[in-house]
């Protein structure tokens, strides 16, 4: 079992395979026994984290005003080049509030 200790000098975790704390070089003998956890810990932590679990990517959007296209997707291109559309079949924007994905995207300034 790869149980970890806690360094009493810096509070960092210390693996059992080392003789000094990998964070602050304090002796491992100073490490106290860490608090014991009950058997439900993994499940409880997962339940907490699960509330906001998500991909590490972007997920967003919604079905309004024809602002998504089902038959084409065009990657916004660099500002100084032609848009890098994956297809030339992108429909025009439905109205001024939509995003014309075949046109260069405005690069919003920070």
């Amino acid at each position: 079992m790869n149980a970890l200790l806690v360094c009493s000098a810096c509070g960092g975790f210390v693996p059992p395979v080392v003789s000094t704390c990998p964070h602050c070089a304090a002796g491992v003998s100073s490490a106290p026994v860490a608090r014991r956890r009950g058997a439900g810990w993994v499940a409880r932590r997962a339940a907490v984290a699960g509330f906001s679990m998500t991909l590490m990517a972007c997920y967003g959007g919604g079905p309004n005003d024809g602002i998504y296209y089902t038959d084409a997707y065009c990657e916004p291109g660099p500002a100084d080049a032609a848009p890098a559309c994956e297809t030339d079949a992108c429909p025009p924007a439905a109205d001024a509030s939509t995003v014309p994905r075949c046109a260069p995207q405005p690069d919003a300034a920070p």
Partner: peptide, 26 residues
Amino acid sequence: PAYVVWELTLRCDQACRHCGSRAGPA
């Protein structure tokens, strides 16, 4: 599989520049 993340559709209305799934059309 206690915790499942389910992509119901790849259809999306934004063109996020960091989107891992390159979402847009279904």
